[in-house]
Amino acid sequence: MDLNKFREMFQGCELAGNKILIKSRMHDVIKFVTENYPYDILKEITAIHNPDGRIELIYNLYSTVDEETLLISILLDGNEAESVSDIFDSARADENEIFDLFGVKFSGNDDLKRLYMPEDWEGHPLRKDYVQDDTRLAWNDDKNNV
């Protein structure tokens, strides 16, 4: 993929390892990429809670036509991101999972709900600042009683 054209469109994007790191406007980037290149599957969205406290999202795009993978990554400033569920239906599922486990809210995806965790669960377990002290869990209860 021609990165120069990409750079013109989206200011401040850079190549970091095998992935393109962008600063903002993820929805526009994904839209641009799918319209101009034959990337037809969004395989997954991976979320990572980095040590500096920011959440990183990695979008794994794949083209079944020329069998190429494209990784686009973004570092979020807060807990909000743009949804791409209007471009890829599969993103809806990924975004829901990330909302449940990381607490990231995706603007444009209006049916984010608790997926794996119970509806009344507090906190998002895959965040690094998550404290495991829920007394409903047997092992935490034991710890308090010792």
């Binding site: 395989k43 997954e44 079944t64």
Partner: peptide, 18 residues
């Protein structure tokens, strides 16, 4: 629809994608 929903494997191949 299969590609857009991230379907892979046999289900995708039964829809004509190699």
């Amino acid at each position: 629809m299969a590609l857009n929903n991230g379907i892979t494997g046999v289900n995708l191949r039964a829809s004509g994608v190699d």
